[in-house]
Amino acid sequence: MTIQYKVGLNAPNLREDVRRIQNLLNRALKTFPRIHGAYKPLADDGKCGKLTLEAIKVFQEKIMGFRYPDQVVDPGGKTWKKLNGNVPDVSTLSVKASEWSSSSIQSWLNEQIPQSVIQQYHDVDRRLNILSARPATRLAKLPNQSGSTKDRSVIAFRQGDERWGASKLGFGNGTIHQYGCTMTSLTMAATYLGSANSHWPENMQPSQLTPLVANEILKKAQAFQPGTVNMYVTLGAKALGMEGKDSGVGIRIQQSDLQSIDHCLQKGGLVLAHVDYKKDWIGDHWILISRKNSQGEYQAIDPTYGKHMILYASPDGGIPVQPHVVLYGRNSSWIDKTPENVKRYRVVRYLTLHDAKEKNGG
């Protein structure tokens, strides 16, 4: 048994990793008398919420003796080793020793300790053999679905989420919360279109991606400009297992570009849209367009809010369509009250995104 990434406060918290820690924390309640009743048994739901964080804190304080528990379990770290080994403390051993014979104690120890240690050894050995033999396993090829629905959906993320918002973006000093709209939008797209490559953690599925994990993948792929938070967007799309075609940096798009966007969406692709709302017509923010509905409206996800919204082919109030803009925000872009900046959204650049394996013929 092992975990791929950290689990706990501001950690990637992959579902399977969290489930393993939750199971180990539940087992620890029975193994260590000092924490009996100190926290409630956890549901192994793979969600690192308040109860799981509190359980990690209690374990670090009472079992590990941490004066300042960080509420994080690192792969191979002290808390992980103690949890995974679940080595009983002295008080438990003394109670057992008074009740059992030496052969009973040995049998009990064999049941409690070696299995997890041996399993961890085999797991590490297996991973090393895989790494030395071939690159990370790729996902099975998705069928080409013109107009149909894929077997997974786009997962919406908010770049300011407490699980990753404060983390440094790329190779710069800014955070994902401050500058991570491009990366967060690409991550959302990759949960639907992405496929694993040599930059991805082994056996990771697109549905397991988060902005925190994607940030590491993109850094490994050198998709960020050196020393900055700025991303080469087409390279970023490729690193996340997608094929991206950019309408061009500094190139003024035309109304005919809307046909390219429509064609991409009809073929089951997604569109990374660069929106302007400060009237400098350069582009201030990136969002993800997911589909065009039967009313001719374009559904999108805004990473600033982690919410769905609507874009339109024309602006509010009969204002003439503007040159070099293809889609607009309106007062009705949100179901509830639309933020002022969203009302001013103007799509001035875009990147069409497709499944890289389908694009390349598998």
Rank of each mutant, 00 (worst) to 15 (best):
I35D: 07
I21Q: 01
L240I: 04
N23F: 00
S107A: 12
G165A: 06
P143I: 00
R34V: 13
L93E: 02
G250L: 09
A140Q: 03
T149M: 03
K82N: 14
Q205Y: 13
Q322M: 14
P12W: 10
H308D: 08
E111K: 09
G268H: 09
L272C: 05
I35F: 07
K78G: 07
P303T: 02
Q254N: 15
I63L: 14
K47C: 07
A239E: 09
S256Q: 13
G65N: 10
C181T: 01
V90A: 14
I155P: 00
Y232E: 11
S294L: 08
S207K: 14
K292G: 01
R19Q: 02
L288N: 01
A28K: 02
N84I: 13
I56P: 07
E162Y: 08
I217V: 15
S333D: 01
E61V: 02
R138S: 09
E243N: 12
P69K: 12
K343A: 03
L235I: 09
E202F: 10
G49M: 13
V58L: 04
G37K: 06
I130V: 06
D70W: 15
A55Y: 03
G248K: 05
G317Q: 13
I56M: 10
N293D: 15
G85N: 05
L42D: 00
E216F: 09
I176C: 04
Y179Q: 05
E111Y: 02
P226C: 09
G361H: 07
R152Q: 07
K82D: 05
L270F: 04
R330I: 01
M1N: 11
D316V: 07
G244Y: 05
K219Q: 14
Y328S: 01
L109A: 05
V275T: 02
Q254G: 03
S333P: 01
H324Q: 13
A189Q: 08
N331D: 13
D284L: 01
C48M: 11
D125H: 07
E99W: 00
K357N: 07
